[in-house]
């Protein structure tokens, strides 16, 4: 039962691990940014769109939320080339993460939109603002603020899920780790270090989210004014 840790190989492969972590970081960051844009557009379409548009958005959400992420990744990377859409592993990974995140993001943002008291919309109408302006100027920001914790949790989940993209050889942290352990057979050491690195990445993301929170939502908790 005695196991002697041997970190020599891991230390030797450190530059590769760091570059894998950096790749994970930027793949996730790009996916989060694009994902939020798609999710916000989807939530807008679901709130203001026609019945047909809302139905299409619903179909998309249900399709994504009820199928495994790995299958979605495979479909994009291996399936789409069949219809002429060929992507590099990293582009396919970002696409899959955006498509996956947006489905959950739409539902989260929609919940925020629904939490806005009707009085706010009445006030917007009484001032003569039209539905699109009310949505943009009155509803959207408080809605985002209301669900910000849920939305950022989903973003962290997206970053962690990026490890699944190692299956299509995207050059992210888990793929690099797999590479190292298959060469050195030091699985325990490699994955312990990688676990710590993912944890560090998560802490970094939380810090960024906290900074964005205090920058965007200066008004503080919105309970005081209905």
């Amino acid at each position: 039962m005695l196991y002697s840790f041997e970190f020599g190989d891991v230390i030797e492969a450190w530059p590769a691990l760091v570059s894998g972590a950096a790749n994970t970081l930027w793949l996730s960051a790009v996916s989060v940014l694009l994902g939020v844009v798609v999710a916000a557009s989807g939530a807008t379409a679901k709130t203001l769109g026609s019945r047909a548009v809302r139905f299409l958005v619903d179909c998309y959400i249900e399709l994504i939320r009820n199928t495994p992420f790995l299958v979605q990744v495979f479909l994009i990377f291996f399936g789409l080339p069949a219809i002429g859409l060929k992507m590099s592993p990293n582009v396919a990974a970002v696409t899959a993460m955006v498509v996956n995140f947006a489905a959950y993001g739409i539902e989260i943002i929609r919940a925020g939109i629904e939490s806005i008291p009707k009085g706010q919309i009445d006030a917007g109408k009484a001032l003569g603002l039209g539905p699109f302006k009310i949505f943009r100027l009155v509803v959207f920001k408080p809605a985002l603020q209301a669900v910000y914790p849920a939305l950022t949790s989903q973003m962290i989940l997206l970053m962690l899920n990026s490890s699944i993209c190692s299956a299509i050889a995207a050059t992210e942290l888990t793929a690099v780790a797999g590479d190292i352990q298959s060469r050195t057979f030091r699985s325990f050491e490699v994955y312990s270090v990688v676990t710590a690195m993912y944890f560090g990445l998560s802490i970094f993301f939380w810090c960024v989210f906290a900074a964005v929170n205090s920058m965007l939502f200066k008004a503080g908790p919105r309970g005081a004014a209905r």
Binding site: P117, G119, Q120, D122, A123, K125, A126, L127, G128, G130, L137, V138, K141, P142, Q145, F217, A219, R222, A224, A225, R226
Partner: peptide
């Protein structure tokens, strides 16, 4: 409706100020 709302101000029981502004 828009024309009328421009000319009619309204004050509500619960103020309905926009909390993020």
């Amino acid at each position: 409706i828009d024309e009328i709302r421009k000319e009619v101000g309204m004050v509500f029981q619960h103020f309905n100020l926009f909390p993020h502004l």
